[in-house]
Design a protein around this nucleic acid. Sequence first.
RNA 1: GGCUCCAUGGUCAAGCGGUCAAGACAUCGCCCUUUCACGGCGGUAACCCGGGUUCGAUUCCCGGUGGAGUCACCA
Length: 486
Amino acid sequence: MEEKVRTRFAPSPTGFMHIGNLRTCLYAYLFAKQHGGDFVLRIEDTDRERYVEGAIDVIYRTLKTAGIEHDEGPDKDKGYGPYVQSERKAIYMEYAKKLVELGGAYYCFCSKERLASLGGDNEAGVHKYDKHCLSLSKEEVEAKLAAGEPFVIRQNVPTEGVSEYDDLVFGHISVPNADMEDNILIKSDGMPTYNFANVVDDHLMKINYVIRGVEYLSSTPKYNLMYDAFGWERPHYMHLSPIMKDAQRKLSKRYGDANFEDFLAKGYLPEAIVNYIALLGWSPKNNDEKMTMQDLIDQFSVDGISKSPSIFDETKMRWLNGRYIKELTPAQFVEKARPFLDASAINGKYDYEKIAKLLIPRVETFGEIAEKVEPLASFGEYDPAMFEHKKMKITLPIALTSLTACREVLPSIEDWTDETLKARLNDLAAELGVKTGQVFLPLRLAITGAATTPGGATEMAELFGKEESLKRLDFSIDLLKKALAE
RNA sequence: GGCUCCAUGGUCAAGCGGUCAAGACAUCGCCCUUUCACGGCGGUAACCCGGGUUCGAUUCCCGGUGGAGUCACCA
């Protein structure tokens, strides 16, 4: 019988949640859900020096808005807790001692100084621990322990042979044992290192599919050695290539350029971000790129995961975000973009839903709202030369004729909407015997005073309302007359 | 530097011995058009190099080159 799939996301609370981390989390979630399994959240805070206050809240918040729901975690204990490593200290020590008894680890009392003297013995200046304390007899160890000497516990890695395993995405991996160091499992402060904690926790929490970054690809044999020493069943592994900022640099929080919440602040929709990062390093069988979380769960597959690093392309994410925005109704747009609308120059002015209708096909992120809406915020003196339009064959006199005709016709219109206005203006163009553009273009310019606007003449007119539109029209006709008189 | 891994257009990527080497983003051109957009149509653009294996290599093997990861009392 197949074992229930259990995956986990195990971030360390060191600050913000960056995109690479989120993608790892997403894949672990997708894999678990696809197989009807459990997705566990575990907090790896064994390094108290890197701990950042509030970081755990960021993790919860990110998961929630990204639409990733964990089945278990510090806030949902299903019997495998605690799910925060700092609260499991005693557990690690217990298992470390067990591993020592089993011969898979040993106590080490070497001083920092002695360790430092081991360094620099090759070109890269890399040193390897010499297993000095492995030769200590049981009595010597007991004596040192009794004397209260500070100690660490190291893994005892064989010096010969090769360790191998099969990775779900990278295939067969084999590493010479001689290249692996006797890493520290328990630090002198009694806390475990990642090397040890992840093995113990994954086993105790019954994690059978370990999904994480490639940085662990070559150290995984060491973890397997521990599973073997304990007599535990090894989990399946799925390592993921990094997301890069460019060909050389990895995307990281160090550059402060890839935090999930930063993208939210720039006006990206969480669904779009999740959709985009799912596609970075994985591709579906078909060519549909816009996918919901459910689509992702259904279609996720290990063989679609790529082995090489992928460069993060914000331009493409913008495009995808634009597609999501285009599917929003004006009401939904307003709901989601309200903070951006309020922060723009039109704050509170005009009907937001009407603005939304104009903005939906014109912005790819909410962050672009401010600039799009800027020309609508004010009206005043402008250069009448703007009315000249070669391609449309519009000169200042022609513009004046059109505007004057508009001024006569418009006041009688009761239903001041885009559709009605458009119909009437089309008729007007026919009556005047001119191209429609020769009426619409001058009118748009006349009531907006701006060369480019997010919408046409009649849309702008509807937005401003009848009274304001006519007022502006009068202003522009005067401006044009003055210009022609000179 | 040792070890592990990777290598298709500018970017994300299909491909898994025989294809005119998909698709998407970006870019360019045209159409639509009342500006800006949306939309539609079309174009430019790729198998890192050198050896093998094979009737035939982007695909398999080896070497080179390039890139990533790792070599911590960080994860």
